[in-house]
Amino acid sequence: MQRLSEFKYENETIGDMASLEWQVQTQGEITLVEAQVTSAYETQVRLESALSPVWAPRTQGVPVEGWDKTGYETTVGRNETVAVGFASPAEPVEPPLELIEQEATEGAPGDSESQPSSRDLLRTLGDSRPPRDITPKRESATQQQTEPVERQPESTQPPALQSWFDAIENRIEVAERLATPSDATEARAVIAEHGGIERIQRLDAQLAADEKQLSALKKRQTALLDRLATTDIPVRTLERLE
């Protein structure tokens, strides 16, 4: 992560006006902006982003209350600091945010006694839909077209693993032939073919080691699969923001 800048901005003409501090960082192609607004008195502020689009923080897949497409609105209490952060795929800009103080209005959003919105409910009560990773994929022509092109066929194994599996498979084939000789002549032929009984003893030891490694791999694989099952990139959310 590259830290680009830290900055503090205060309007000096009015001593007690709300102040804004920010930090801009980049991570890969993503710009991360953190900001703190401090005020000596209660005030309603809007932080207008200079970066577009704004990837607002989300709860249950819904933007946190106060965020819209271009910025964030909130009320800062007397002598309080409000910290916010957002991401954007845009290039970093200085300053990343503009602080706009707004006239205090009665019945600020969220304070009213009216019914909450559907999105408020989703945010508060949580999404009841099943996670993406347990929903079966439907194979249809249209879906295949929309799949990312860089997607690898699932059967492909990493090359290193492939050659290791091949080697084990060869050893097992030999072992199977040794285990089920149809007669003594064939058994002797196999022993001779594999360089005598000592080589076969070493093969036996190697197969025992293979078995250990394979079961260790299985454990690792299961653990990774479990982790994978609980990881979910919010692609839908990200697509909507794009």
Partner: peptide
């Protein structure tokens, strides 16, 4: 799930009376 409200209102505007069978639990679908 957030499209439910609009859906229900559309049905009510045509049929007047609507009964929604809600799921168990206290998540957003309830």
């Amino acid at each position: 799930p957030t499209a439910l409200t609009k859906t229900v209102r559309t049905v009510a505007s045509e049929y007047d009376r609507v009964v929604i069978d809600s799921p168990a639990g206290l998540r957003c679908d309830a």
